[in-house]
């Protein structure tokens, strides 16, 4: 099991992480070692074993659709790097 530099670049792009060439090389080695270690579960017989995504016996927890307390608008945008008129300001999504 060895992750190639190309695969690491692809994963970094999926995760939206800007990485230096040094970091790419570092993660290629480290992630390969960790995945090698994780390989040991591949040999476990799990045919007919259901997955456990969460441990609680709860499902479909609902509440009444009623308006509750909300954050005031100014509190919601107070930590934004850029905000205007109570909105988060972001760069244009569509290019000309």
């Amino acid at each position: 099991m060895k992750l190639s530099i190309e695969e690491v670049r692809h994963v970094a792009e999926l995760a939206k992480l800007e990485l230096s060439d040094d970091e790419i090389n570092h993660y290629a080695l480290q992630l390969s070692a960790i995945l090698d270690y994780a390989e040991q579960i591949q040999g476990v017989d799990t045919s007919s074993v259901p997955p456990t995504p969460y441990v609680l016996p709860l499902s479909n927890v609902m509440r009444d659709d009623e308006l509750g307390e909300c954050l005031p608008n100014e509190a919601a945008v107070a930590n934004a790097a850029d905000a205007k008129n109570g909105y988060f300001r972001v760069r244009a999504i569509f290019e000309e």
């Binding site: 994780a38 579960i41 591949q42 476990v44 799990t46 074993v49 259901p50 997955p51 456990t52 995504p53 441990v55």
Partner: peptide, 15 residues
């Protein structure tokens, strides 16, 4: 399936 799915199944065995 090989990683996340398998890990969830082995989680069941641990539980």
């Amino acid at each position: 399936d090989a990683y996340y799915g398998k890990a969830q199944q082995v989680r069941t065995l641990i539980k």
